[in-house]
């Protein structure tokens, strides 16, 4: 256990600067974006008030208040761009977390593979570290929305403010896809995402074991699984399949669990018997 935690720490520590960079970039862009969006919206409203000779109260009665989500919709890309960069960064690091051990300075993998513990600990610790990065960015995003709500409360006149809870605010944004408010959505998004990471880990280890042939086999395995799940999804959406949508969902979950188990077993076997420095 101690070795596992040390390895997890090692992986987190190695990524710390990139993670801090991603966090800083996300916070800066999203908070500045909201500030600019509120400024533009309030300027437009003030212009309208002057043109139509309305007071704020009259404006609110005629056009209703302006919720935080609506302000965001005018500068949506400022919210989504950092998220896409974070997903891209973590996605790229799924590969780098392995390959930097082989191709980084002083071929670190020699030392890691020589540790007097199960090599599978390497696999699990890298996976744990990646999940820690994902959920720390998830937590940061919740924190940013909380700060944005405070900015909205301070800046938006009382008459135009639409009171919402944190959860309700997130529910009203496209952001809810990445920060689900429903437990089963959370389990599906992050469950399927985790299995996808395991499939890529298997692909990397197959490439390390069998080089080009292994890479092809791993990619085919990953693509095949994703296509099967996408096909099930399409069948559920069309609504004409013999299986009911809830049964297709159960089948998709079973398939992903099976693949997770297969990936873990294969990863363990490859690390133990095939992967060499």
């Amino acid at each position: 256990m101690k070795t596992y935690l040390k390895l997890v720490h090692l992986e987190i520590y190695r990524f710390r600067l990139v993670l801090l960079g991603l966090m800083a970039m996300t916070s800066a862009i999203q908070l500045i974006g909201l500030q600019l969006a509120m400024r533009d919206r309030l300027q437009a409203i003030r212009g309208q008030l002057t043109r139509e000779g309305l007071s704020l109260a009259q404006y609110a009665e005629r056009y209703n208040g302006i919720p935080l989500g609506e302000i965001w919709s005018h500068r949506e890309s400022w919210m989504t761009f950092p998220i896409v960069i974070c997903i891209g960064g973590i996605g790229l690091y799924i590969f780098l977390i392995w390959y930097r051990d082989w191709f980084g300075r002083s071929a670190f993998v020699y030392r890691l593979l020589m540790l007097p513990h199960s090599r599978f600990l390497l696999y699990v610790s890298k996976f744990t570290a990646l999940m820690t990065f994902v959920f720390s960015l998830f937590a940061l995003q919740i924190g940013i929305v909380a700060v944005q709500m405070t900015m909205y409360r301070l800046r938006m006149p009382d008459e135009l403010r639409v009171p919402r809870t944190l959860v309700d605010t997130i529910r009203g944004m496209d952001l809810v896809l990445f920060i689900p408010v429903r437990l089963h959505e959370f389990l599906l998004v992050y469950g399927f995402g985790s299995v996808f990471v395991l499939l890529l880990f298997t692909t990397i280890l197959m490439e390390r074991s069998y080089r080009f042939k292994g890479l092809l086999a791993g990619l085919a395995y990953t693509a095949g699984t994703l296509m099967l799940v996408a096909w099930m999804w399409a069948q559920a959406e069309r609504g004409t399949a013999l299986l009911y949508p809830s049964e297709l969902l159960a089948a998709a979950i079973a398939l992903m669990l099976l693949n997770a188990a297969l990936s873990l077993w294969l990863g363990r076997w490859l690390l133990r018997t095939k992967v060499a420095a």
Partner: peptide, 12 residues
């Protein structure tokens, strides 16, 4: 209601 994305098509 709402807030369903991945699970949306899986309703019988």
């Amino acid at each position: 209601t709402g807030s369903l994305f991945l699970s949306a098509p899986f309703d019988d």
